[in-house]
Nucleic acid binder design. Structure first.
Length: 470
DNA sequence: AGGTTTTTTCCTGTTT
DNA sequence: TAAACAGGAAAAAACC
């Protein structure tokens, strides 16, 4: 596998250093905290490029291309060095954070890599972009091992970084449009089939498995179209919908186990024992969501990390955590506010926070303690701060209103709440609850009120780490 | 062991 | 009228 993978890699010597010298990019600091974010990561690509891009884009001087489409670019590297395609290519690189990673073009993949290199201050000469000459769908399906093969020293970081972006993208973007082009009534099962064909053509990734056609593996996708998935859905609802892509087994579906995707399949979700093994692909993020038995997990740390912190280990890959499906339709686990009294009237829920029913973890059994709940960086305000630093969420779901004064606004308040709930393994999180927690920060001067502005908050003197240089 | 911290949940009422 | 805001109350659960 390793040998064939290496052979498959285009043997070019072009490296990131050369790339950067061809295309001046913003400094790492600008990447971390883009001022203003819209300029670096425009919500929608302009239909024609600006005449002078020097202010924000460095000293790029570009002649206006006569025609410039942002769709379907397949520019070769030589093409990219022409002034016209320079602009196109740069636009597309910065557009990576405006679409689901599964839909990234090669250029957007490169944009993501450029960002990751800057964000995590990786040594550019160690990362050969040509080794990642894949589109987003392929990148997402690459395993940790494959990342490490393509980039021996920093593959892990890139793997975790794309994992993080993928996790966030679940709430922001529809992962399937690339496979749903065509009639609007395209069903998910057709998409799955198309995706399967796409997988079969992958250079690096083994096709699924057992040579079973996808329609045999997943005979009923429920006719869900991509349009049915709304980022504003509460994530347990999304969970049900996305979770059926492909359909999850039911307790009565005895045939499912014999039809499950094999372990090489990008759809293969892995058994419990597989989590944390080296054989991971990010394609798991398109499977029904799983939670660990412990709400919050401590993340692996890179003790020898060269500079700053690297992306969190995705807790879904933790090997020492019990894994169980999030979707649980059993009566005792139904949301309490949906319980019906024997008389038929809805039962009013008791005040206060309901006790979480959580099976004991191995840690609890051996040490008598659960993992830390409020470990460093786990506080809500820190989470919000980090969303503001992340170009895949800023400005899409949260954005600076006044970068210097620390004033920011929730653009998609429910999406932020969903992400926070996801982080805390709490599918019932809403913006209403999140905002209550935010209001508690006023007293502690972590946040300050911004009167007469809805969804707008301001960092207070007790908040740290949000300024450009601290 | 018990207080503290940081949420989470529910609620009533108000403002936009 | 809906969404957001404000803040009280109670509780969970890890932290100290």
């Amino acid at each position: 596998m390793a040998e064939s993978l290496k052979q498959a890699i285009d043997d070019t010597t072009l490296d990131l250093g050369q790339f950067l010298s061809n295309f001046p990019i913003p400094t790492p600091a600008q990447f971390a905290i883009p001022p203003p974010s819209e300029a670096l990561f425009p919500p929608t690509p302009p239909t024609s490029p600006p005449n002078n891009m020097s202010s924000t884009w460095g000293n790029i001087k570009s002649e206006q291309p006569s025609s410039c489409t942002l769709q379907g670019e397949q520019a070769s590297f030589t093409e990219l060095q022409t002034p016209q395609s320079n602009y196109m290519s740069i636009q597309n690189q910065f557009n990576w954070c405006n679409s689901h990673p599964m839909n990234w073009s090669y250029t957007q993949v490169r944009g993501f890599l450029t960002w990751a290199v800057a964000e995590y201050e990786l040594p550019p000469h160690e990362i050969n972009f040509e080794h990642f000459r894949v589109n987003g769908a392929k990148l997402c399906m690459m395993s940790r091992e494959e990342f490490s093969l393509l980039c021996p020293n920093y593959g892990d970081i890139l793997y975790l970084s794309i994992g993080k972006v993928l996790e966030e993208a679940q709430y922001l973007y529809d992962p399937t449009p690339a496979f749903c082009e065509g009639p609007s009534d395209t069903t998910m099962s057709e998409s799955v089939r198309a995706m399967h064909e796409e997988m079969m053509n992958m250079d690096f990734i083994q096709a699924p498995v057992d040579d079973l056609p996808m329609q045999d593996l997943f005979p009923d996708c429920g006719g869900i179209t991509a349009d049915d998935i709304d980022v504003n859905d509460k994530f347990d609802d999304v969970n049900v919908e996305l979770g059926d892509f492909p359909p999850s087994p039911t307790s009565t579906d005895e045939s499912y186990s014999s039809m499950s995707p094999g372990r090489n399949s990008p759809y293969y979700c892995g058994s419990e024992s597989d989590y944390g093994s080296g054989d991971q692909t990010l394609g798991n993020l398109f499977m029904p969501r799983y939670e660990t038995s412990d709400g919050d997990s401590d993340h692996d740390s890179y003790g020898s990390s060269p500079r700053r912190s690297y992306p969190d280990e995705l807790h879904m890959y933790d090997s020492d955590k019990e894994v169980k499906p999030t979707v649980d339709f059993s009566v005792q686990n139904a949301p309490i506010n949906m319980k019906i009294k024997p008389g038929g009237a809805p039962e009013r829920r008791a005040r206060g926070r309901p006790r979480k029913v959580r099976p004991p973890t191995e840690e609890l059994l051996t040490t008598g303690k659960r993992g830390r709940q409020h470990s460093k960086g786990n506080h809500l305000w820190e989470f919000v701060r980090d969303l503001l630093k992340n170009p895949s969420t800023n400005p899409k779901v949260i954005k600076w209103e006044d970068r210097r004064d620390g004033i920011f606004r929730f653009v998609q308040s429910e999406a932020v709440a969903n992400m926070w709930g996801r982080k805390k393994n709490n599918p019932n999180m809403t913006y209403e609850k999140l905002s209550r927690a935010m209001r508690y920060y006023y007293k502690r001067q972590i946040l300050q009120q911004v009167p007469e502005r809805r969804l707008v908050y301001k960092f207070g003197p007790a908040a740290t780490g949000w300024q450009d240089k601290e």
